[in-house]
């Protein structure tokens, strides 16, 4: 499963939705995520990709669309250890 597919699965799981959002669609405005689902999603991203998201990065804007999430996760996954 690709990174993008894993992220979609996580979003669908925490939002309890069977339908994947469009890549650029706002996950808040479209109702996929609320504050608590967003918190759950961050925890799942950390576990799935074995990354540590610092508190300073925990802003809704950073996780507002599949595209943004993928870009952010890629940056953490691909940075040198």
């Amino acid at each position: 499963m690709s990174r993008q597919e894993k992220i979609i699965e996580i979003v669908k799981r925490v939002s309890k939705s069977d339908v994947a959002p469009d890549p650029e669609e706002s996950l808040f405005d479209s109702g996929y995520l609320d504050s608590f689902a967003l918190t759950d999603m961050v925890g799942e991203l950390e576990r799935e990709f074995d990354i540590a998201i610092p508190d300073s990065d925990l802003t809704p804007r950073r996780f507002d669309s599949l595209e943004r999430i993928e870009s952010y996760v890629a940056r953490l996954c691909d940075q040198p250890a």
């Binding site: 504050s35 918190t39 961050v42 802003t59 809704p60």
Partner: peptide
């Protein structure tokens, strides 16, 4: 709200 909840939950 989302920022407050995210930060508090951590």
């Amino acid at each position: 709200g989302p920022t407050v909840i995210m930060q508090a939950a951590r």
